[in-house]
């Protein structure tokens, strides 16, 4: 019998490796997810123009008092395009406000993008120089932050958000944060 078992060893080793690989495909596993030092910290101070109205400034204080998502995006970002439809869906649910941080982008192109693909954002912050993105520790678009009513960052996701992530992680967290007020 052991004569036959011996030849099963390679298969067994492979099965173990495959199990780990499968686990690695899990949505919640992200090799890039270096725990953000900003979680539990307030949103950095900023005062920037709106994408839609260049002469209106928006600051971090304007956003206090509600739970919201801050989504970093740009028209040059391919993954943002992939993510956009998911955000539009989320916007339609009316469960949480989404603010966009339009990062190092061209204003005309960004406005055209929203007209064309739909606009899920309550408003878009136009961060031409990328200064606020640096303060937020963004190192690649898209990134999404969940911020509570006190302006504290509670969760961060690097890379495109998926419908599953919204259903399983973001919306439950939003509900919980809203309950706390």
């Amino acid at each position: 019998m052991s004569r036959y078992l011996r030849f099963l060893v390679p298969l067994a080793i492979f099965a173990v490796i495959a199990a780990f690989l499968f686990k690695g495909l899990d949505e919640n596993y992200n090799p890039r997810a270096i725990p953000s030092p900003l979680i539990g910290k307030p949103v950095p101070e900023f005062s920037l123009p709106l994408l839609e109205q260049p002469d209106t400034q928006i600051t971090n204080k304007d956003l206090l008092g509600k739970v919201y998502l801050l989504n970093v995006w740009a028209t040059w970002c391919v993954s943002c395009r992939a993510e956009h439809e998911t955000l539009v869906q989320l916007g339609r649910m009316n469960k949480v406000d989404i603010y966009g941080l339009n990062w190092k982008d061209d204003r005309v192109a960004a406005q055209a993008w929203l007209r064309q693909l739909g606009n899920p954002y309550a408003a878009n912050i136009f961060d031409k120089k990328g200064r606020t993105a640096i303060d937020l520790g963004v190192y690649g678009a898209p990134e999404t932050f969940l911020v509570d009513a006190q302006g504290i960052i509670r969760y961060k996701h690097a890379g495109p958000v998926s419908p599953d992530l919204i259903r399983d992680k973001i919306l439950p967290m939003v509900a919980e944060l809203k309950k706390k007020g």
């Binding site: 004569r3 036959y4 030849f7 099963l8 390679p10 298969l11 492979f14 495959a18």
Partner: peptide, 14 residues
């Protein structure tokens, strides 16, 4: 591919 071939191996190699 890998699982199948290793299964074949476990079956025939003895």
């Amino acid at each position: 591919a890998i699982g199948g071939s290793l299964l074949l191996y476990a079956w025939r190699a003895p």
